[in-house]
Amino acid sequence: MTLSDRQASIDYILEKGLLTRDSALDKARMLIRRLGLRLMFGDGPLVIVFAALALGITALVAGCAPVEWRHSVAVGCSPIAFLVIANVSEAVDRASRVYDIRQTCYFTVAQVTAVRVMCLGAVGVFVTALVAGLAATSAGDFLHLLLLAVAALSMCAAAQLMIVGRRHRLALSVGLTVVWVGLGLGLPLVLGLFWEQLLASLSWVVAVTVCVVCAALVVWRAIRMLTESRYHAFA
């Protein structure tokens, strides 16, 4: 190190102070504080319209579906609002070409995506509770449906961060939502009551295990996206 480099480094430290790298939790907290609701509804009107549509359709399907299909409805419908809001926000970012600027800001697109998925996941649990509540026939049934729905939501959240968060492409954002809606509708149609019975027979242990594994994947991936600089640039 030359003397001038050394002096520049000293000046830098004196100016900024001796800083330690922010933890993932600190970053997430700061991001939520700075962006607030804009974290979830980046562009505003468009995402809010899609969110309202998705929530309306979810409530309608969950409320009107026959009781004997309640497990399929819980698994198929619960993550739709989550997927629509998360992916419309991503798609708007991508289509509006704000990506390059956002990527050079203090909070990168990857970091916003990570925290957005976590927050939407948390909000999504309430939506799944609503769906389970509308479809359930008893308290025990409600808990079983809730677990299945949360497991489905966790799987989508994990897929969102592992796939869309890694390969930030517009087609992937749209594709993930389409695939889930397709599976949610297609499996009951193709497999009929066998699919419904399969879901109904899934034990609590399996559902809890799926929830825990997927939630762990989400948290692990989010921490990496929030703290490791090599994940910041994926242009």
């Binding site: 700061m30 700075r34 962006l35 607030g36 804009r38 980046g42 562009d43 505003g44 009107p45 468009l46 708007v92 509006s96 070409r97 704000v98 990506y99 390059d100 600027i101 956002r102 800001c105 203090y106 909070f107 916003v112």
Partner: peptide
């Protein structure tokens, strides 16, 4: 400032700058 500057068409300059201000911490 990128060559091909992207922006949210539905936002006003003020809202857009305030949003980017938040993303810039």
């Amino acid at each position: 400032l990128p060559q091909d500057f992207g922006y949210y068409k539905n936002q006003s300059p003020r809202k857009f700058l305030e949003y980017l201000g938040a993303v810039k911490a």
